[in-house]
Simulated scan of single mutants.
Amino acid sequence: MKEFNEKLAKWINSVPSTDAGINNIQIPGQVEHLVWQNRSKAPSQYELDFVQHLIQAFRQGVTELNDLTVALNEQGFRNESGDVWTVESFSTEMQRLGY
């Protein structure tokens, strides 16, 4: 199974084609269905770790953003630059990661 959509990776920051469907015609019964349609790359180890720490916080009943940043800090998980989480840094990170 592919970890990401290779076509999407090529399209990021590119100029859209003026020719509709060029090299992209789908033949019924021969369409490649991708599990990760919207991924342009495989997730990094940091992103995978981030998900696990978020899951742990949610399992503890965290539902508010401020409490989520507190939970991440209490777990010892820091952002990619090594800083503790704030509401602002969490929001910025979610925007950067595209979620």
Rank of each mutant, 00 (worst) to 15 (best):
W36S: 14
S81R: 06
T69Q: 04
Y46E: 01
G29S: 09
E32P: 09
A57D: 01
A9R: 02
P16C: 00
T63W: 03
G76E: 05
R39K: 08
F50W: 11
M94S: 00
E64Q: 14
V87H: 04
Q75R: 10
Q52P: 06
T18G: 13
M1D: 10
G98T: 13
G76K: 00
N5Y: 04
D83R: 15
Y46F: 05
F58K: 07
V84A: 09
L8H: 01
S44G: 01
Q37R: 13
T18K: 15
R96D: 02
S44Q: 05
K7M: 00
S40Y: 08
S81A: 12
L97Y: 02
F77R: 07
L68V: 06
N13G: 10
T69A: 06
F4G: 09
N13H: 13
L8E: 01
N5E: 11
W85T: 02
Y46M: 01
A9Q: 01
I27Y: 12
I22Y: 15
Q30W: 08
A57E: 03
G29M: 01
D49S: 09
E64M: 07
F50G: 05
Q52L: 11
L48C: 14
Q37V: 12
D67R: 13
W85R: 04
D19M: 03
S14I: 08
T92C: 06
F50C: 07
E3A: 04
K2Y: 02
T63H: 04
S89R: 02
V70K: 07
K7E: 11
W11I: 13
P16S: 05
L48G: 11
Q95H: 00
